[in-house]
Every structure is written in C-alpha cells, then in structure tokens.
Design a binder for these strands. Sequence first.
DNA 1: AACACGATGGCAACTGCTTGCCGCCCTCCG
DNA 2: CGGAGGGCGGCAAGCAGTTGCCATCGTGTT
Lengths: 336, 336
Amino acid sequence: MTSPTIYDVARAAGVATSTVSRAFSNPQRVSAPTRELVLRVAKELGYEANPHARALTSRRTDTLAMVVSDIKNPHFYEIIRGAELRAKASARTLVLVNAEESPRIEREQISRLSRSVDGFLLTASRLPDEDLLEFAATQAVVMVNRQVHGIPSVVLDQREGCRQLVTHLASLGHTSVAYLSGPQKSWMAGARWAAIRDAAAEIGVSAVRMGPFTPRVEHGAAAADAALTTGATALIAHNDLLAIGVLLRLADRSIRVPRDISVTGFDDIFASALCTPSLTTLGGTHANLGRAAVELLLDAADPTGRAGTASLQLVQPSQLVLRDSTGPAPVGRSAG
Amino acid sequence: MTSPTIYDVARAAGVATSTVSRAFSNPQRVSAPTRELVLRVAKELGYEANPHARALTSRRTDTLAMVVSDIKNPHFYEIIRGAELRAKASARTLVLVNAEESPRIEREQISRLSRSVDGFLLTASRLPDEDLLEFAATQAVVMVNRQVHGIPSVVLDQREGCRQLVTHLASLGHTSVAYLSGPQKSWMAGARWAAIRDAAAEIGVSAVRMGPFTPRVEHGAAAADAALTTGATALIAHNDLLAIGVLLRLADRSIRVPRDISVTGFDDIFASALCTPSLTTLGGTHANLGRAAVELLLDAADPTGRAGTASLQLVQPSQLVLRDSTGPAPVGRSAG
DNA sequence: AACACGATGGCAACTGCTTGCCGCCCTCCG
DNA sequence: CGGAGGGCGGCAAGCAGTTGCCATCGTGTT
C-alpha cells in the first residue's frame, strides 16, 4: 500500500540511505557499480522519491509558478503552452495562477506559493515596480511582457513593432491614429503608447491616446465610440480582444472596415485570423516567450553560478501580421 | 532571512509546538484563549506553515492536478478557468498538466504527480477504462467529459444535445449527415457518434461516420474532403477547431456554407462566433464543468465521510448555439 | 469526599530525504 | 616503503511540521 522509501531501497541493496539518496540526486558522488545497483533495486521496488521530503531539506521543489494577469485572455494560452512544454522538458511542474487583473490577488497568490515553488513567471504583471523588486529579492522571478530594471525578463519588442505598425498605416495614407489604451497598471500599455507616439512623431502622423479600457471584447464598443470622436482614420487597439470588440461595434454602427476606418490589434490571437474583416495585428511567437522565460527562470532559480544571466532582459522580435482590417485612408473626409 | 517555524512561534507564545500546530490545523483542539494567543503571535512573527513539512506527515498537499488532453485546444480554457477559480476559493493550488493527446504522457504525468497532489482532474482522458480505474483506486480522481463506471465525473450532456443538433439539421431538410470523428481514444468521440447515430435513426435521417481525425484546424481539410465523398449535406465536426478547418477548406474549394452544405461543431469556442460563416455548435457552460469537477474532487479527496458522493456522475446540460453555418438543405442535388 | 471523565497542553516519536563530516582504503608519489 | 590525498560509503543530525499518548486540572456525580 504505502510506497517504498529510500530505507527500503537501502536495505534491499545493502547500502546506507545516504548512498541511495546520492545515487539519485548526486550521481557522480557514488561509484558506478554502486549507483547501478541502487538504481536497479529502486526500479524493482518501484521506488519514487517523495517530493515533499525532498523539498523539506533541499528547498528545491521542481515546481514553477506562472501568474497570468487574466486567464481569460487567449493571448496567454500560447505563452502558457510554451512555458508548460519547456518546464516539462526539465521535469518541472507548472502551477498556473490567475491574478484576475487585480494587484491584490496577484500579491496574495505569490506569497501563498512562495514556499512551494522554485520561482515565479509573472506575465503582464499589474504590480508596481517596487513590489516586484521586493519579491525578486527573495525569490527567483522572471517577468514576461514587462520590464523592470534589475529583474530578468522576456518581452516582445514593442518599439520596433509599433514603428512598423505606424509606418504601415502611414503608408496607407493615414495621418491620424488613435491608440485605444489598455489598463492603467499595464506596463505594456505604457510601452505601446510611448512607442506609437514616438513613431508617429518621427513619421509625421498625429497620434492620440484614448482610454484606458479593459482589454476585452465587451469593452470594444466604448472604445470604438470614443475613438470615433477623435476623427482618427486608424485605430490601434491595445490588444486583439479589444480590437475585435471595436470591429463588432463599428459593424453595428455601419462603419465599414477598412474602407472608412482601419483597425489593428496586438497579440495575433487565434480568432484574429477568423474574424471579419480579419485583423491586422502585431504578433510574435508567443510560445517562444514562454519557453525563453522558463529557461531564464530555471537558471535564476539554480543556486549554482547564477551570476551570468542574473538580470537578462530578453527582447524577442514581434511581427506585423497584415490582414484585412487595414486599408487606404479614406480620402476627403474624416471617419467620425 | 529564513522564515519563522512553529518552534519560533511556540517559544514566543510560551507553548509547545504541538499547540501551535493544532491552533492552525485543528483549532477546536485548543482552548479559545490559547488559540488566539498563538494566532496573534504567529501573525506578529509573520509565520506561515511550510507546506512540504505539512504534507510530509499529514499527506495533504492542498494541491489539485488538472490534466488536459491537449492544451492547445481553446475549449479547455473555460474549463481550466472554472476549475482554477473554484480551487482558489478553497485555497487549493491548481497544477496544470498537458497530456499532448498521448496516453503514455498522460500516464507518466499522473504518476509523476501522484505524490504531490491531493487528487486529479482528468479532462477528456485518452486512457483506457482499466487504467483509470486502477488510478482511481489509489487516489482521488474526477473525470471531466468522460464517463467511467465507478469514477465520479462531470460531463456535458451529449445525448440530448446531439438529438437537438440532428433535429435542427433535419428540420432544415437535411436527410443525410456525416460525423467527422475525433480521436479513436476519445471517449467523447464515441459518445457523440452513438448519440448522433441514435438520434438520426430515430428522426429518420441517415448518418455516417468518417475519420478519426485529430481535432485541429489543420486537419479540417482532410476531414472536409473525406466528408464530401459521402454526399452528406450536413457535416458534424467533432469540435469547433475541426469545424473551422472544414469551413476554411470548403471556402477554398468554393463550396458555399450553408448554401451548399451545412457545418456544425462542438464546444462553442470563442472563435466560433467570429469565423465566417459563424459556426452553429453545441456548447455549454464549460466554466461550470470545471467548477463542478473541482467540487467533486474536493470531497472525493476529503478523507472524512466521502461515501455520499463517492461515484457521482454529473451530467450538465449542453446548449445548441445556432449561427450561420447551418441552413436549408440544398434541393435537387448532392453536395459532392 | 472520593471518583470519573472531558478538556487541554506537552512530550516525543515520526514523516522521508539531504548533507556535513568522518573514516576507510586504495593509489600515486617521493 | 611511508605518507598524502582522493574516492567512496556510512553516520547522524537536521528539515518543519503532525499526532498518538500521557499528565494535569477542573468539574460533575454519587
């Protein structure tokens, strides 16, 4: 009934428990013949180490926590998938945690788990820099799609991506774009707006920011209505969900996309290719983000020789996906 | 640096460690004044129990594992979300595990985690009944969207749902439907086919089954092509992903939906409302599935008084969502 | 007044594994 | 041939809780 322990293995193999322990967790510390003997006996007995007993002394749990700001957002799925795959490849367990867009919940969850995991992947964290730095001081943390000086992170490039996006719109003749901003506490929203503003200035188109909006489909109506008051002919929504919501609202109001107005999003979620019109969006290989983040985390959590990569800020290229929601600017009239 | 233990609390409060332990895990075993003292001191010291030490002796981990057959499928995310929410409400941690449609991986993951969690949520498991029964004998297991006699489960009703679906098609004049089956090892695929076959027989339309197909968008082409050879005027794809793939292929082949042929899916994923034509599908409140499953699991995993609900098979209503991919059967000619 | 019993707190063994330290033995070197 | 040093196995003390059992005390019972 109860599963075998190292004691059972030790007895059966005629060695000390320390030898059994080392055969598993520190193989080169045991001579080859002994090690093989132990492993063979262990296998016969069906021995599997008790992870809790192991964690108790070694303080390693082989578990990683991934906190996402809103588990409803399909954009995270790819990241989760990449992270899950990479974690499994290193025999780590991934705990998924939802912060529900709330800094308080995020904080609670982190402290609840801090004892049970080797490190945290914080995805699009809504927490202020100070809190993050404080957490990062006591445990391994890697940020995804958020940069904080002094904490390793993986982000999809926004500057260059937004430049391309604005350039694309400008090349279609748009001279005025509106950014429909994401949540106030979203670092990404700030980064996007800054990049859009700068690119717009450089290229010579005007840019305004509206919002903040909660980036979900159902808030697209408000965003669309707000955007129309600006007279902009191109709308850059904070993400695809919001953009889809905008598309739906515009259709409702019989405003044609892209003839009357162009719309773009961010993330390139699955539905963006399928909606009507299909959505031009700034995407990227999100699974890679998750994968890279886990890699960073694994060696941030590795007690040996962490120095090298301690505070790496990885930037992965984003990628403009042109579809049907962007087109030439209407001539001689505003969209409003 | 190192966080306080019950020893620190015990010393500070002037009681024995056992008293501290009980104040937390067995409150009524300690007199109210003592308990309050202990809790107050613990709070002052910032004490938090070490979950591994606790798990080592008590064998409770407050962690639940959720195994999904394919983490890529958006359909699971609603279930995950519901499960995650419910788990958090009971202060349980949810571990997410991907089985990648492989029984072997599923088995591996389960045994890897069996020591670290209080129970398993197996979603659309690809394992044979015997394996499941064996697992269920030694640990708490709840199945989602799969039924095995003797194991508690939560499923979305297929019989009635498929009946409605076939009835809907028949009422549009379709006399011949094709089911594009899911994976061979998918219990759901079997359940759906059985329900469709029976409903078709009862209603008086003919039904054939094609496949199995891996239920992803990219396999939709093969499924569509196969289906067209049958001459059926209505296609029931195993899930929305496959259905969307079918729609794309049919568009490629200039076959109009629903004029030439009707297409339906299962699951009602987010994209199904947005694709063109939007997809008629058999959905349901999947978040509820996840929630209910966790509830079942919590009391299957509860060592006290489990008898009552030991092997409950919950069936939740599914719900036919009519959209644009189904329409009147073409008259006077077959689709092929 | 003697006794029983329930409530409460403490003792200490126990969970299963890790790891610092010790000692043995064999090899290599001077 | 003696000594040094490295490789390897074992001892035992943790790690941070849980829990069975016992002792104590106060109260209710006869």
